[in-house]
Nucleic acid binder design. Structure first.
Ligand SMILES: [Mn+2]
Ligand SMILES: [Mn+2]
Ligand SMILES: [Zn+2]
Ligand SMILES: [Zn+2]
Lengths: 137, 137
DNA sequence: AAGTAAGTGCAAATCTTTCGCAATTAGTGT
DNA sequence: ACACTAATTGCGAAAGATTTGCACTTACTT
């Protein structure tokens, strides 16, 4: 069972496209499918955008990558190996601040206590204003 | 200055379409543009979807409605008169739990203290699992 | 080495939101 | 009541993002 490659271990075929998509997600952090495709093309120019989409979905199904929504809804992918973190997204300048999940623990605990809700703060960003944007017109 | 109608008070022309869009947002709560259009059509079948989009934007510009992102990023509109609240969105069953903003105050304060970030919890939903979905396969 | 199902490329289809433009209409002033 | 002007609307087309059908290719199995 324990194969020799992480993709095969998950029951997936090992294709150059798939490996490159996974590598790109890992290298880029918070990348859109478009950005992943762009990156893969530097090594494998022929890759098709739909292949990127399909592989992102496949990799997410086996738990190697995850998506989240920053800004106003666009999808972005990151590797599952990254530390879990929440995203603070400034609505003025677009800056993303990463917040370790520990810093959110008491909040998520209060949602559990108050509403029985098991929070996944990684999936959607938290909107607002960064310090410098807040101190402007 | 103080006109006789809330739309005119905001400097907007009073059209049947605009009134109906505002009424639909108020009636529906968390409605997509598509759902707003659907509702308006029951009274005003001829309304065009682009008119709905344009009016939602206009109404948002003058502060009568606001949008937020529930689920996986889709836009939804609600009336500004509703109490400000955060949304907990169950990723399994789609349920939306509304949380009064007071219940989130200590969390947003901690983001301000720790990151200088002025949080707007109403804009994006918080993802997770509701109690009953959590207690399932 | 051959067979099979998974994966890929390509083009077309969807879906959602935006845009240009000519026709209509609300608000203003006679 | 009538005319004027700019805002608003309807419509069709465009744009951007993601999905799909299908024939061809390729990774893995035997
Ligand atoms: Mn938004
Ligand atoms: Mn999502
Ligand atoms: Zn900012
Ligand atoms: Zn649920």
């Amino acid at each position: 069972m324990a194969d020799q490659h992480e993709l095969r271990d998950k029951g997936l075929r090992l294709t150059p496209q798939r490996e490159l998509v996974l590598a790109a997600v890992r290298a880029l952090e918070h990348a859109t499918p478009e950005e992943v495709a762009e990156r893969v093309k530097s090594t494998h120019p022929g890759i098709n955008l739909s292949t990127v989409y399909r592989n992102l979905e496949t990799l997410e199904n086996v738990g190697l990558v995850q998506h989240s929504h920053l800004g106003h809804g666009g999808v972005r992918y990151h590797a599952s190996t990254e530390e879990i973190h929440a995203h603070l997204n400034c609505e003025s300048c677009g800056t993303i601040i990463e917040v370790p999940i520990d810093a959110t623990a008491s909040f998520t605990q209060s949602l559990l206590d108050g509403y029985g809700f098991h929070t996944d703060l990684a999936h959607l960003a938290i909107a607002g204003r960064c310090e410098s944007c807040f101190n402007k017109p």
